[in-house]
Design a protein around this nucleic acid. Structure first.
Length: 270
DNA sequence: CTCTTAACCTGGACGC
DNA sequence: TGCGTCCAGGTTAAGA
């Protein structure tokens, strides 16, 4: 479910409830999600104060004194802050108990998410090797152009490669490529420097706009306060296969690229 | 290295 | 109503 805008929306929703709060304990209703839940969540985090809630790529970090809880929402994960004692439902796998008499609740039906631990001063292996943040200045068209030389994979697959640039998933890759006028199936190494400049600008603009709308809710994404994201109203191509292009009226086409559904306008994108 | 494919897991939508 | 099939916002591991 969540790409960068949804994770950032989650981060912004959580921070006011978590920063400065002391963790009283943790309730684990199952031992693993994608991987075993780190033992430090129950054994080391309680008693510590959450100093900040940060984001790297699609990961969230709850930073405490001896380390940070490292979370990924996978395809179906969500986090909410609820009054202590709120009955838990199916797939509510973890509660982190706070000294505010609230709980941070991690729900993830498909369990593709994870809850790990990064020791203070260390970099978790999952965070090593990630590409730049798309909203940082270090990310631009030249970065994409240089990284793509000689690459034969589809440009959409390339754009979703987290070692190239982080945070872009299936929705925003499709939308950015439409905005830049690039066909998603084109080989990454056969896109010009000029067109990569347009693509990088499109990525930045679309992600920023999506964050401003609270992300995209297709079925089950919710912010920590329970609110959906409204960027779904601005989607140009994602989920619109067969429908008319909003720019030219041509029927949007769809095909699988890298095992992900990909939609584009055959007239606007080349 | 790069690229492709299978796998992880549940639930909703759809066809019969 | 029930059952089988396919698909879904992500990522890793294994193989070519």
């Amino acid at each position: 479910m969540p790409e960068l805008p949804e994770v950032e929306t989650t981060r912004r929703g959580l921070a006011p409830h978590l920063v400065g709060r002391c963790v009283r304990g943790a309730t684990l209703r199952r031992a693993d999600l994608r991987w075993p839940i780190a033992p430090q969540i129950a054994a080391e985090l309680p008693g510590q104060t959450i100093e900040s809630v940060s984001r790297r790529a699609k990961y969230l970090l709850l930073e405490a004194q001896t380390g940070a809880a490292l979370l990924h929402l996978g395809m179906s994960g969500s986090l909410r802050v609820l009054p202590e004692g709120t009955p838990h439902g199916k797939h509510d796998h973890v509660d982190v108990l706070l000294d505010s008499d609230h709980v941070l609740r991690f729900n993830d039906p498909r369990r593709f998410g994870c809850l790990l631990w990064q020791a203070h001063g260390a970099v978790h292996p999952l965070l090593a090797g990630l590409g730049p943040e798309p909203l940082d200045e270090a990310f631009d068209g030249d970065h994409l152009w240089r990284a793509s030389r000689g690459r034969t994979a589809p440009v959409k697959t390339f754009l979703m490669d987290q070692s190239v640039v982080v945070g872009v998933g299936n929705i925003y890759a499709a939308e950015a490529l439409f905005r830049a006028g690039i066909a998603p199936g084109r080989a990454a190494g056969r896109v010009s420097r000029e067109r990569y400049a347009a693509l990088a600008a499109a990525v930045k603009d679309i992600l920023a706009r999506a964050i401003a709308r609270g992300g995209t809710t297709l079925r089950d994404f919710i912010a920590p306060d329970g609110a959906p994201g409204y960027f779904v109203q601005e989607l140009s191509v994602y989920g619109r296969a067969g429908q008319a292009c909003k720019a030219c009226g041509t029927a949007l086409r769809a095909r699988m690229l890298g095992q992900r559904a990909s939609v584009w306008c055959p007239r606007c994108q080349h």
